[in-house]
Design a protein around this nucleic acid. Sequence first.
RNA 1: GACCCCAUCGUCUAGCCUGGUCUAGGACUCGAGCUUUUCAAGCUCGCAACACGGGUUCGAAUCCCGUUGGGGUCGCCA
Length: 447
Amino acid sequence: MIKVRFAPSPTGFLHIGGARTALFNWMYAKSVQGEFILRIEDTDRQRSKKEYEEEILDSLAWLGLDWDELYYQSRRFDLYRGHAQKLLDEGKAYKEGEAVLLKMIPQGIKVYDLIRGEISFDTSNFVVCDDKGEPVLDKDGKPPLKDEVLIKDDGSPVYNFCCVVDDALMGITHVIRGEDHISNTPRQIVIYQALGVKPPKFAHLPLIMDEGGGRLSKRTGAAAVSDYRKQGFLPEALVNYLMLLGWAPGDNQEMISLAAAIKKFSIKKINKAAAAFSLDKLKWLNSQYIRQADTERLADLIIPFLKEKKYIQEDFDRQKIKNSVDLFKRRMDTLLDFLQRADFVFIDDFQIDPQALEEHLSKNREKEFRLLSERFSKAEPFDAATTEKVFRELVTELGMEASELVHPVRVALTGKDIGPGLFETIVLLGKEKTIERLKKAFKAEKG
RNA sequence: GACCCCAUCGUCUAGCCUGGUCUAGGACUCGAGCUUUUCAAGCUCGCAACACGGGUUCGAAUCCCGUUGGGGUCGCCA
């Protein structure tokens, strides 16, 4: 049975890079009917926070990455200490104060990485260094090898030790993690040797860089999964985007579901080079998923945003929201876009774009607007076909081009010169609101 | 600095393992056009890459070496 794990440390939110690591682990597990284990690495009691832990679990669940088992390292300290004691008893480790250290001996270590192939190290290079990274020389003028700390002075176990003990005890067969862990690998292998356990297979994923090619950080944009959620991204879009960073389903396919992806997934096909995160492409994928999403679901996702913005209260009209969503579905990159573009559906005191005002409402349209209001008030039924017919008849009577009136009316009704078809918009607003806004517009013009 | 990893359009990538079918394919972005009441969508077209230098070979994006560039690690953090 193949067993993999994702082992986040709850010292921060689930990062986009962490999410991708979790995703690849999950996809690999599913692709071979293996198990995906979640292990919270909270050995640093100072920095680990319950809120981060909850956020990580939450984000993973939101992305659809479910786990088979959940462990907390903070509850396994006795286990780690027990294994340290065993190494002590066997004479493989030694004590220094309360700390337990493993003696590092010079040796070449070869790791066969599933993504990169063979990587070799020489523990002779693992020497004691000062703050500047310069080797510290002993009396003979040689830098001594740095022994591996297993248990700290305060009795708490060190990451590399916990990691190895857990991976061994949990029967992890494949360690799939970020490239930043490559240099931990030989040290961990030394611990496996001491423990007398065969190391698992390793696969080191390339890192995700920011758009400029630098390190992905909060400064260069949202880096936490929960931020993307708040910004109106759909989980399937984020997951799809993340899997495309370093892997491709083949056949020039861009959009792919998790279910379809696990059928095509293979560790061997993962790229070696780091990938830069592109918000543009994520947005494009998101717009594609929004477009094909079920309107009911989109409405459910948008309602909290509308409430937060105070655009709707508890007694909202769900049908109206669904109608608006249908109209804007093809015009959104993120759910947040809806709030801006469809604001006029929910509020009367929407901002009028100054440029649109200047361009389309600077001429006096009082006569046209009044006539249109009168015709609209008699229009029955008040649907797109009828309102368009009424509108076009009036325009013809007045000897105008349709566009001469279309744009001013749109600006009067929505405050914008862009948006869905005018007649669909009019129907969405309803007869009463349409007429009210037309009247308000020419009154405003007078004043 | 030492050690390790990496290198195809601006970005994500296909191709590389198993050299020829690659005048290097797709996607995002950008530009043009069509369509159109605006925007978006859609459709069509376009710009744009094998980092460099040596080998190996009849032949290299594909294999080898070097250079350059980028990244990672160097904590009794994880």
